[in-house]
Amino acid sequence: MTTPDLKRRRVYTTIGNARSSLQLLATEALMTLPDLRLAALALAAALSLSPGATAFAQNTEAAFRTSTLNLSATGEVRAPPDIVTLALGATSEASSAQAATTQTTQRINAVVAALRRQGIAPRDIQTQYVNLTPRYSDNSNAPREIIPQRATTALMVTVRDIDRAGALMDIAIAAGANQVQGVRFGLSDPAAAKRQARDTALRALQDNAAQVADVMGHRVVRLVTVSAQAYSEIVMTANRVQEPSAPGSRFEPGEIVINANANGVFEIAPK
């Protein structure tokens, strides 16, 4: 008799003995009427061992018969960016909240008008936040007083011709923007690059499974489970300037890196 057959027989014998003992205990308890609680517990335990235990034994037997590989793989795609997002803003300080807000609004309106004259569509200009903050005196020996009020408005501007991004930032600064909070490169259609990276990771996963199984003298029988996820690394330059920069700003776009991870479980068998 083989080793799996002996293990299977031991499992079934143990279950059968436990079931018989519990059924006998239940019968004896029922003959003693005061011990109804013990009888109920014994019967429940005996019943629970019947179908569930058989399934457990079958699963245990299957575990001895099946070998699996749990592997992971990665994929990478590099693509030149075709859009750039400028994070611009305007901030003003004045003795009153109304004066500070008015000055900032005038600056932002002038920036938006200048960008639209350059062909930037309304859908590519978005207000990110508006902030009004009082500034207090820092004299610790005297009561704190509000010195000026500071009003800030921030814009996100999407530029679809990245070669014009530097010139457009210069135009925005000349029109009144006095904050540059970041420059971010991206892809207008990241889904296509993510699919390519995912497919690369899945093919690598399949190749890895075949190679590992072969080294171990096995073959891949089937794929049991698989998962894959792709994500892109955002290329961002974060610089904050309060004064207009020198004209002729230029940005180097580099490349966008899209990575993907794939995980899979493979059933294998001897060749």
Rank of each mutant, 00 (worst) to 15 (best):
M1Q: 03
P4T: 03
D5K: 03
R8S: 01
R10L: 05
R10W: 09
V11A: 08
V11T: 09
T13W: 12
T14G: 10
I15C: 05
G16I: 02
A18R: 01
S21H: 05
L25M: 09
A26Y: 00
T27R: 12
A29W: 00
L30F: 06
P34R: 00
D35A: 12
L36K: 03
L36A: 05
R37Y: 02
R37C: 03
A39T: 00
L41Q: 02
A44D: 01
A45S: 00
L47Q: 11
L49F: 09
P51Y: 13
G52W: 13
T54M: 09
T54L: 11
F56C: 06
A57G: 10
T60M: 06
T66W: 00
S67A: 10
T68P: 08
T68R: 10
N70I: 07
L71R: 05
S72I: 04
A73H: 08
E76Y: 07
E76V: 14
R78V: 09
A79F: 02
A79V: 07
T85E: 15
A87E: 07
A87V: 06
S92K: 07
S92E: 13
A94Q: 12
A94M: 03
S96H: 05
S96R: 08
S96I: 13
A97I: 15
A97F: 04
T102R: 08
Q106S: 15
I108M: 14
A110F: 03
V111Q: 06
V111G: 04
L115I: 06
G119K: 01
G119V: 14
A121L: 10
A121Y: 12
D124E: 09
I125T: 08
Q128S: 06
R135T: 15
R135F: 01
Y136M: 11
N139L: 11
N139V: 15
N139H: 07
P143V: 01
E145A: 14
I146C: 11
Q149P: 06
A154C: 04
L155A: 06
M156P: 02
V159L: 01
R160G: 04
D163H: 06
A165F: 07
M169H: 10
A172M: 00
I173W: 13
A174P: 03
G182F: 02
V183I: 15
F185G: 10
G186A: 04
S188M: 13
K194F: 07
K194P: 02
Q196D: 05
A197G: 02
R198V: 11
A201Y: 04
L202P: 04
L205E: 08
Q206K: 14
D207T: 11
A210R: 12
A210T: 12
M216W: 03
V220L: 09
V220G: 07
R222T: 09
T225H: 04
T225S: 04
V226R: 12
A228Q: 13
A228Y: 04
Q229R: 15
E233S: 11
M236E: 15
T237H: 08
N239C: 04
R240V: 06
V241L: 11
P244L: 00
S245Q: 14
S249I: 14
S249C: 02
S249A: 10
F251S: 06
G254S: 14
I258R: 02
I258M: 02
N259K: 14
A260Y: 12
N261D: 06
A262Q: 15
F266S: 06
F266G: 07
I268P: 09
